[in-house]
Design a protein around this nucleic acid. Structure first.
Lengths: 202, 202
DNA sequence: GTCTATACTGAGATAGAC
DNA sequence: GTCTATCTCAGTATAGAC
């Protein structure tokens, strides 16, 4: 039954987003979805693969919008570097639409990314596009030493994951996610454009 | 035996830092520490309280240095606001010493903070001092609207947790932690000092 | 006061009947 | 495709040895 599979996916997305991946047991999922425990393993193989399928289901849409925005920016810019702020907006704002329709999904992504327990399960779905953005970002910030640039990307990932997955300071309605992301873009843009730290101390 | 308790703490710190809190079972800890399973519950009560004791053991030192630095900065500044960069250094750099002697501990703190599964277990030990720093930071950035300021604190926490707990881009020796933290301070300083985002869009 | 042995419940996973 | 029964391993609780 295709219904069973969908029901498991929907329920798992809901519960994983609310309470987190690790603390939610498959038994809670199957109870809420009113299916049998073995059905999960039949359809997905394992709890981790269920999570994987969950992310896969929605990642494509985000990836496509991210890619479209990047290509538009590149076309507009021609040979000139793209403004840092525009790149960060192109990467981050596509999450807003998803957050408004499926807030639990965005929380889940942030949580799983931050937990780092499932190494690479988020990367697997978002890495290819992320790499293109990072390359474009590099072209827009050519004077920063490479390690400092890469660490700034690292800082961005942390801030992003925590903003999407962490308990928000102001809970607020889903629409508030838009403003939150804009504030994040402002913050990160300034961080990326900061002059390189002095290398005096190792 | 005081030895048993210490052995459990040391071993747990090591393993939790390496693999994370949730994925490390108590049975792995007691096997490595060569003690009995029930001894953990005798001395600590539960896995979560073991983690708590672990953090407590090292948090005091960090907190004291953070406080000392803040008071020195306040004394120097008199009535003038303290430079943002100096505040962020005062808060972040005390982690460097710990990272060099006990890198696993710093990873653990970052991981647990990022996981968010044990809500408040990190806050419990660091919140009081953090609040004082946040208040001082506020005095140094008086023109930013309150929500935007608080969100920037939130972004900082995410970047910090990911930098301490996440898999580093360049593994490197423990001494490298110093340079990493300096880069983080540079990045965050610029982020905090960025002009407020336009409120045009909600 | 410290620690050991053992058992209990609930987790994810799997084999095999239907 | 689906469900029952069962396996292993997790965290936890307790009775009792020293």
């Amino acid at each position: 039954m295709v219904e069973t599979k969908e029901k498991i996916l929907d329920t798992a997305e809901q519960l994983f987003g609310e309470k987190g991946y690790a603390p939610t047991s498959l038994r809670q999922v199957i109870a809420a979805a009113e299916v049998n425990l073995a059905a999960v393993h039949y359809h997905f193989g394992s709890k981790e693969e269920l999570l994987d399928a969950l992310i896969h289901r929605k990642a494509d849409g985000v990836n496509q919008e991210r890619l479209a925005r990047l290509e538009r920016l590149e076309a507009q810019a021609g040979n000139r570097p793209i403004p840092v702020r525009a790149l960060l907006e192109g990467f981050l704002m596509p999450m807003v639409g998803v957050a408004e329709s499926h807030p639990q999904f965005v929380r889940l992504i942030g949580r799983v990314q931050a937990e780092g327990l499932l190494p690479g399960i988020v990367q697997k779905h978002f890495q290819p596009i992320a790499k293109r953005y990072i390359a474009a970002l590099r072209r827009s910030i050519p004077n920063l030493p490479e390690p400092e640039f890469l660490w700034r990307v690292h800082f961005m990932v942390g801030a992003m994951a925590h903003t999407m997955g962490g308990t928000p300071i102001f809970p607020g309605p889903p629409e508030a996610f838009h403003g939150r992301m804009r504030k994040l873009v402002t913050f990160l843009t300034a961080g990326f454009l900061a002059p390189a730290g002095k290398p005096e101390e190792k």
